[in-house]
Design a protein around this nucleic acid. Structure first.
Lengths: 241, 241
DNA sequence: CAAAGTCCTTGATTCCGGTCAATCGGAGGG
DNA sequence: CCCTCCGATTGACCGGAATCAAGGACTTTG
């Protein structure tokens, strides 16, 4: 596993987990600063490169993590290699399946990812002691369930064109949580293959749909990853809602 | 709304909610008998016919329910009428989206359904007071999320044949939670159209796949709804895992 | 029992997206 | 600079599921 030295802290030194102070959706948003300090004694931060497997589908879970930055893809694979990405997680989401030994999905870094991890035992004890923490977890889980169900509509009933438009809107929304203007500009966090695995399509079909959006003047792409959407309402018309 | 008289109780009379005593996954499994009695004062039971809408996609939620018996389908619809069933709920699941005014999906009775409902205000107060209740909710929500993600793999990556086999296995599993033998026999809780909407297919394709399974001797069907699967392992080979 | 209705099945044809294969283009290395 | 590598694009063709259209089985109604 590839760990950048500068981002690694010895897990015995008390480190204030910075991710947990800032935003609303991470596990630690529910904690007081005292509790945070407690947790920090057991936490360790690290940064990993794109492609690094953070959690295996049927490996034992030894620790839970908060995502500090980057995008994590959750995926499932069939015996013959067919793959489906079943969710994306952004900072400051919580990573891990509580109350189970295995978590049923593979978590893999899509971009460079920084995480802040705690041992399973510590976090599960804290859940038992602090109802606010469990409440936070319930809220995130309910949000993830809503997202999963939204995506099921996309997978089951949308055309390739609508799927790609929906994907771009999803990423644009996460890149600019409260965008006022009608223009969006961002880096795609995933390869064409990953996008295909997320949309239940092939790489080639995704590529053709990008080409069509480009030809129609709805989007502009440079370096394969950098996207500009001048009028995002024009794109959402194509997503089919 | 069609309510069978004999199943309706006046919500002012204290009624012990029987659904809540028996099984493990409903909300009330976490409650003591005293708490149950409390809740019963505000609960009302009713039975509805197949097709009855229990919760609208964007209607205000006034109450939450436990499913006592029957199957409830959760679905989403696009502006042009395309529909996707995003989940099935069986007794003793909890029905409703806590902490939100709207719940984003339509809940509709697939079979005859009996539910036990409580006002939103009562249950949300109880959640705040009783951590066990919130824990129960978190566990159900996590299970539903696992199921949703499993189904995303089915929707995105399986063929029509594999989808239908997966559906039959899902229903067989819920009909016989711990089936020892290799034979399964049950009633399909949904029409061909519903199954299609669940699998992201058309009615015709579902029908053809049933015909093929019948021709291959994997299943037997009578009255369109009654299914016998002599060797369920032979079916799961076709589901693709 | 006929008529109508609902749900399901079957057939003929079309078309969207998959498959297979060639090519492009930027990044990096000798 | 050429060469290779890798991801993305493009093209030709194919196939699985959708679409359109009948027809069948069963139930309900008068």
């Amino acid at each position: 596993m590839d760990i950048k030295r500068k981002d690694v802290h010895n897990s015995d030194t008390p480190v204030l987990c910075q991710a947990c102070e800032s935003r609303h959706r991470g596990v630690c948003g529910a904690l007081t600063s005292d509790q945070l300090l407690q947790l920090s004694k057991h936490s360790s931060r690290r940064a990993v490169e794109p492609g690094t497997e953070l959690i295996g589908e049927s490996t034992q879970i030894k620790n839970y993590s908060n995502i500090i930055s980057g995008v994590v893809k959750l995926s499932k694979m069939m015996a013959d290699g067919r793959q489906q990405i079943v969710g994306l997680q952004f900072a400051p989401d919580f990573l891990g399946r509580p109350f189970r030994k295995e978590n049923g999905v593979t978590a893999e870094a899509a971009t460079e990812v920084k995480v802040c991890s705690f041992p399973k035992t510590v976090i599960e004890r804290m859940i038992g002691e602090m109802p606010e923490l469990e409440h936070k977890l319930l809220e995130q889980t309910l949000d993830e369930l809503d997202e999963a169900r939204n995506w099921m509509l996309t997978l089951g009933r949308k055309t390739a064109g609508e799927k790609v438009a929906s994907y771009l809107l999803l990423i644009a929304t996460h890149a600019f949580p409260e965008n006022e203007t009608d223009t969006a500009e961002f880096e795609l966090p995933m390869s064409r293959m990953d996008i295909a695995d997320f949309l239940g399509l092939t790489m080639e079909t995704v590529s053709r749909q990008f080409t069509k959006l480009r030809a129609d003047g709805v989007i502009r792409i440079t370096n394969n990853r950098h996207v500009v959407i001048p009028e995002i309402t024009r794109l959402s018309d194509r997503a089919g809602f």
